[in-house]
C-alpha cells in the first residue's frame, strides 16, 4: 500500500516536473532564439516612420528616433518609411537637416509608401537612395501660401506698419525665397540623377512612381523590404535586426480651402482648434482639398479667426 502511494507520488512529481520544464522552456526558448540570432546579427536597421502632415511635433518624434539611431552603436542604417504629402515649411526643413545629419553618419534609404511629396520629399532629399512603389507619388517641389495682406483693425495697437501685417510683396518674396531654397536643395542632392531641368523642378509637378524612378526623383521601384535590405547592404551587414519606430498618434490637423470674399483662403483645423483657422504662413504641401468650412463671409468673422 505504502509502496503504491510512493510510486504514485513519484509519477506525479515526474509529470509536474515535465510540464514545468515544458512551460519554462516555452518561455525561455524565444529568448534563447533571439539571443542566438542577435549574437549572429551584425547590426540593426532602424525603420523610422514619417507620416501625415509634417508639423513641429511630427518632426520632434522623428528627430528623436534619428538621434537614437546616431547614438546607438548597434544601429548601422536607417530606413525612412514615408507616407506624407508635406506640411509646414520650418518643420520640413528641420526634418531635412536631421536626415542630412544622419546620412553623414550612416546609410539612409527612403521608402515611399503612398505619397512622399512637397515637405516630405524635402525631408528625404539627403537619403542615399529613394525607393517608390508604382503607385507612389513624389515631387511637388514648391511652396504655397497666402498672398494678400490682411487688414489689422484699428482696435489693435502696433509699433510699426509691418508688425503682424506683411505686405503682399513681403509674402511674394518670402515664398520665392523658400522656393529657391527647396529647388536648390533638390538640385544639390538629386542633381546627378535628375533628367529634368531646374526649371522643370520648379514647376512643382508630382510624379507617379515609375516616372519618378525614370526622371531621377527616385532611384528605383521597390517596397519597404527592398529598402531595408538595401540599407543593410550599404552598411555592409548581412545579418541584421530591424527595429521599427512608429510615431505616437498625435492626431494631425487638416488643411482645407474655402472661397471667402472672392478670395481663396487656406484654413487648418485639428486638435485644440474648434473652428477652422486661416493659415498665415507658407506651406510645403502637395494638395489642399477644397472644402467649405461654413465660415462666415463677413469680414469681421475672418478677422476674428485670423487673430484667434
Amino acid at each position: 500500500m505504502n509502496k503504491d502511494t510512493s510510486e504514485a507520488s513519484a509519477r506525479t512529481i515526474f509529470v509536474v516536473a515535465v510540464v514545468a520544464a515544458v512551460l519554462v522552456s516555452a518561455i525561455l526558448a524565444p529568448v534563447a532564439y533571439d539571443a542566438a540570432q542577435s549574437a549572429q546579427s551584425e547590426g540593426t536597421v532602424s525603420v523610422i516612420t514619417v507620416s501625415g502632415i509634417i508639423t513641429g511635433s511630427t518632426v520632434d518624434g522623428v528627430s528623436e528616433d534619428l538621434r537614437e539611431a546616431r547614438t546607438n552603436e548597434s544601429i548601422r542604417a536607417v530606413v525612412l518609411k514615408v507616407d506624407s504629402g508635406g506640411g509646414l515649411v520650418a518643420p520640413s526643413e528641420r526634418l531635412y537637416l536631421e536626415v542630412l545629419r544622419t546620412s553623414e553618419q550612416m546609410p539612409v534609404v527612403a521608402s515611399v509608401q503612398g505619397i512622399g511629396a512637397s515637405g516630405a520629399y524635402y525631408g528625404m532629399l539627403p537619403a542615399d537612395e529613394i525607393y517608390v512603389l508604382s503607385s507612389s507619388e513624389v515631387g511637388s517641389v514648391g511652396v504655397i501660401g497666402p498672398g494678400g495682406s490682411t487688414p489689422v483693425p484699428d482696435s489693435i495697437i502696433r509699433t510699426g506698419p509691418d508688425k503682424a501685417q506683411p505686405t503682399a510683396e513681403d509674402r511674394r518674396r518670402a515664398i520665392e525665397s523658400l522656393k529657391r531654397q527647396f529647388v536648390g536643395r533638390v538640385v544639390e542632392h538629386r542633381g546627378e540623377e535628375l533628367s529634368v531641368s531646374r526649371e522643370e523642378v520648379a514647376y512643382a509637378k508630382t510624379y507617379l512612381g515609375p516616372e519618378a524612378a525614370s526622371n531621377g526623383y527616385a532611384d528605383g521601384v521597390g517596397a519597404l523590404p527592398t529598402a531595408i535590405d538595401r540599407a543593410a547592404e550599404m552598411a555592409g551587414i548581412e545579418n541584421y535586426d530591424v527595429a521599427r519606430q512608429e510615431p505616437p498618434f498625435r492626431g494631425g490637423f487638416f488643411l482645407l480651402t474655402a472661397e471667402n470674399n472672392n478670395k481663396t483662403m487656406v484654413y487648418k483645423q485639428g486638435p485644440g482648434i474648434d473652428t477652422p483657422v486661416p493659415v498665415t504662413q507658407p506651406l510645403l504641401v502637395d494638395e489642399i482639398p477644397d472644402h467649405d468650412p461654413e465660415l462666415s463671409t463677413d469680414d469681421s468673422e475672418v478677422t476674428r479667426n485670423a487673430s484667434a
Binding site: 542630412l100 510683396e169 518674396r173 520665392e176 529657391r180 536648390g184
Partner: peptide
C-alpha cells in the same frame, strides 16, 4: 548644417 546648406545670396529675393 543649416548654415552650410544655405546659400544666402541665392535665396535672397530683393525688394522691387
Amino acid at each position: 548644417l543649416a548654415d552650410r546648406q544655405t546659400d544666402i545670396d541665392a535665396v535672397t529675393v530683393s525688394e522691387a
